[in-house]
Design a protein around this nucleic acid. Structure first.
Lengths: 116, 116
DNA sequence: ACATGAGTTGCGCAGTTCTTCAAGTCGTGT
DNA sequence: ACACGACTTGAAGAACTGCGCAACTCATGT
């Protein structure tokens, strides 16, 4: 493949991970990877202001991780890249490994974090 | 879901992705997932200030993604969680999908962004 | 035409993160 | 004991994000 990309790949990767680096956005992607949701449905399940939700959706749209379409009065979002689900799962497994390891160390110091 | 958690999992995930959301840190992880590196070796391959590199290493250390040990005069870093490699690969494949898709659309609209 | 529910956008402030410079620590060789 | 290379830490300003409020758009129902 010809292809030295001029926006170096590692920078694109960083951008990509940045868009995943926010609790609300993670939550949204998790919900959408179960099934499509209208904005007001997301709103019921994620406790944030409508405008805030809208902004987070805009971030996800900008990186094309989600797409939307109108249907009657509502706007329906869906994940555009199904593999995102795998990525989230991979992250969870790494994460639980890390937490378990730290838990071992910290269980004496701060028992607070343990239960996941 | 049994599981009300003190640090909700999706928040921990977001934190995790945040630590991946920086070009230098991605670069470091990529290099370390090939083989262990001393700091000055990383410095040769990543064009940033020593102190900056050190800070980014500190971020990765804080989340336990890397570990280090001294050996003579140098400090050697290694990835502590080998699965990180898979995660980076997964990200790359999603990313190249996205870039390919966007490239198709944008090549006619804004040739500006392309090479870069 | 108007009101209403569903979403989005613009803006300003508060809080974070990045980056650089200067100063500090820790080993090794002399 | 001293100097030097290899790193790390601290601090401060710039740059960026996140959040809520108010204003706006758009489609539907009356």
């Amino acid at each position: 493949m010809g292809c030295a990309v001029s926006v170096p790949l590692y920078q694109a990767k960083a951008e990509f991970f940045k868009t995943l680096g926010h609790p609300a956005r993670i939550r949204i992607l998790e919900l959408l990877s179960e099934r499509d949701h209208a904005v007001h449905e997301l709103l019921e399940k994620i406790a944030i202001e409508p405008s805030n939700l809208s902004q987070q959706l805009a971030v996800l749209r900008r990186t094309s991780l989600v797409v939307f379409h109108r249907q009657g009065g509502e706007v329906i979002y869906s994940v555009s890249v199904p593999e995102v689900r795998d990525l989230l799962l991979a992250a969870r497994s790494i994460l639980s490994g890390l937490i378990a390891a730290q838990g071992d160390l910290e269980s004496e110091l701060s028992p607070t974090l343990r239960a996941q």
